[in-house]
Amino acid sequence: MKKLINGVPDVVDESLDGFARAHGDIITVSHDPRFVARADAPVQGKVGLVSGGGSGHEPLHAGFVGRGMLDAAVPGEVFTSPTPMPIVEATKAVDGGAGVLHIVKNYTGDVLNFETAADLVGAEGITVRAVVTNDDVAVQDSLYTAGRRGVAGTVLVEKIAGAAAERGDDLDGVTAIAEKVNANVRSIGVALAAGTVPHAGEPGFDLADDEVEFGVGIHGEPGRERIKLEPADALTDRMMAAVLDDLPFSSGDSVLLFVNGMGGTPLSELYIVFRRAAQILDDRGITLSRSLVGSLVTSLEMQGASISVLKLDDELTDLWDAPVNTAALRWGV
């Protein structure tokens, strides 16, 4: 295993130390308990947004803390859910009196620990709602979930719900927007090679040189099938068919197309995938209205990519375009 680390037990905390030094104008970091919050938190009168999960998916979630997006993120150890107490303290730290929304990816540990935290802060008088993201069309159930997994579409939920909170929507309104985005986004991923979890010291799974995992999860969970490596266009065709036929998307729809890298994929390859995905939208009469390309929901250094498609309306488009100022997404400021 070759990694730019010092000791395995120190990976998350040392990474957060560097993150805090690099982005101290946007965020603050608490180590005990461990969470990242907006530098100006709590914002009085604004709904607070909190997300989190295992580390190793950076910039998700800490990279999306800031004005117009999340108020706090709670990172666990690599690929390990955070425990309830850091979630409790993060929720309390960003409560501005208007309630807090938890955005939770559909993994059993995340769901249970966020539910426990919500109960604990609720006993202290803080109103909490939760939206569980489940945009992955690859599998209905996996080793980690009951139902579909929450993957890259979570970024779109966080951005659009964050904009709704920033414009002053109440807790019910922000929750409804988050649920609307989650209901209208679909994602699928493909892996060419696995990442290596530091405490394991070896790749999470093995693929032959001519194999890919179609429908892989963001922790390296198995997907729909293991298939032979194909050219980028053929793989993109498979991914887009799985996504577009699931909602389903239809001619006349306006969409946001998000091509995400898993951590070890060059940006040039992501644009090759985006190019083909955009052609498919054109062929189906679907309008490519907004776009996002980059490695934003990673799986350490996994080679691969995911595609997310979100059906837009005027309100969701306006909220997507609204200003955001985070370490990983920034526009309109």
Rank of each mutant, 00 (worst) to 15 (best):
R167F: 00
D283Y: 04
V131D: 10
D314L: 12
D135Y: 10
L156D: 08
E315L: 13
V309R: 01
I160D: 03
D313F: 13
D110S: 14
V121T: 02
D237M: 04
V43S: 02
G63C: 07
V50T: 11
V309Q: 04
D206Q: 12
T175C: 04
G109W: 03
V12Q: 12
S295L: 09
N6I: 11
E124H: 05
V255S: 01
P198I: 09
R34D: 09
S250T: 14
L143H: 00
D170C: 05
L112M: 12
T236H: 03
L16S: 12
I227P: 10
V78D: 01
H61I: 03
A161V: 12
D10F: 10
V151D: 10
L171Q: 15
D282E: 15
S81N: 08
K92W: 00
I26R: 15
R224S: 02
L319H: 11
K2G: 04
G97W: 10
K159M: 12
W320H: 07
A183N: 06
F79T: 02
V78E: 05
D210K: 04
P75F: 02
F19E: 13
R149A: 10
E225T: 11
V121W: 00
E301Q: 10
L288Q: 07
V50Y: 06
S254T: 04
N182G: 01
S295W: 06
F19Q: 11
F214P: 06
A73Y: 07
G56Q: 09
